[in-house]
């Protein structure tokens, strides 16, 4: 019989900022939609496919219409929580040295493609990996850059005269607003894939994001790849 032991997987600082970010980002996206509704001009037109952000049914179903002032008031409170929590995560990751497990390495971008093919069942072998696979390194780093991007584009449309240099650098006010919106779509895409991967990885992986530890075999060579 294989004996098992508990191994520390996710540090306290990482779990704390992760679970704080979840509701805070949710409130930011929700209040952002209350704001966006007042000038909902974006649509995707790819040949025959057209999608308008957002169909009236979405506004009605989730009660998002005619709430601009409320959206702004909430957005401009929770922006501080979002920024502070993100800063705490980055500081923690840098000081603890955990960034080494997370930032992409030389081969990460190429390997990430192979991880993706593996996950889709199109490839049998995973490339060699550390605590996080190449796709995770790329994604978890990109999401932090995106968070910074949301703060920067957000500031550019929040105070476009005070930071006119920044707003102009992002292509002007209307472009900065579109960039801010596009980043939010990016979070939604991340969220869908993240949840699918968490479900796939199973209970042990999920509970380790809550408790910090997971049960591993004492024989380390049998270690399963980590997905989350």
């Amino acid at each position: 019989m294989v004996t098992k032991r508990l191994e520390q997987k996710h540090s306290f600082g990482k779990r704390w900022t992760h679970w704080v970010n979840f509701p805070v980002l949710f409130v930011m996206i929700w209040s952002g939609m209350l704001i966006y509704w007042a000038n909902d001009v974006y649509e995707v037109n790819a040949g025959p496919v057209a999608f308008h952000f957002f169909p009236d049914a979405i506004y009605r179903t989730f009660n998002l219409d005619h709430r601009l002032s409320e959206g702004m008031a909430v957005h401009f409170l929770f922006m501080w929580l979002f920024a502070f929590n993100g800063l705490m995560y980055v500081l923690y990751t840098v000081i603890s040295g955990e960034w080494r497990d997370l930032v992409p390495q030389k081969n990460s971008f190429r390997d990430a493609l192979e991880v993706m093919l593996y996950d889709l069942g199109l490839r049998k072998q995973l490339p060699p990996q550390g605590k996080y696979n190449a796709a995770q390194r790329v994604t978890y780093s990109a999401i932090i850059v995106m968070g910074l991007g949301s703060l920067v584009t957000g500031l550019a449309i929040y105070r476009p005269i005070q930071v006119a240099w920044l707003t102009e650098g992002l292509g002007g006010y209307t472009w900065a607003r579109l960039e801010h919106f596009a980043l939010t779509l990016g979070y939604l895409g991340f969220f869908v894939i993240h949840i699918a991967q968490v479900v796939r990885a199973g209970w042990g992986n999920f509970q380790s994001m809550v408790t910090g530890v997971e049960l591993v075999d004492n024989k380390l060579e049998a270690k399963e790849p980590v997905h989350e």
Partner: peptide, 24 residues
């Protein structure tokens, strides 16, 4: 056993998460 310890940490962990969610 490690299994027992994990069970205890899981209870505590999810209790903490629940308290945090309730506070939010």
């Amino acid at each position: 056993t490690p299994e027992q310890e994990l069970a205890q940490r899981t209870r505590r962990g999810f209790l903490g998460l629940g308290v945090g969610a309730a506070a939010a």
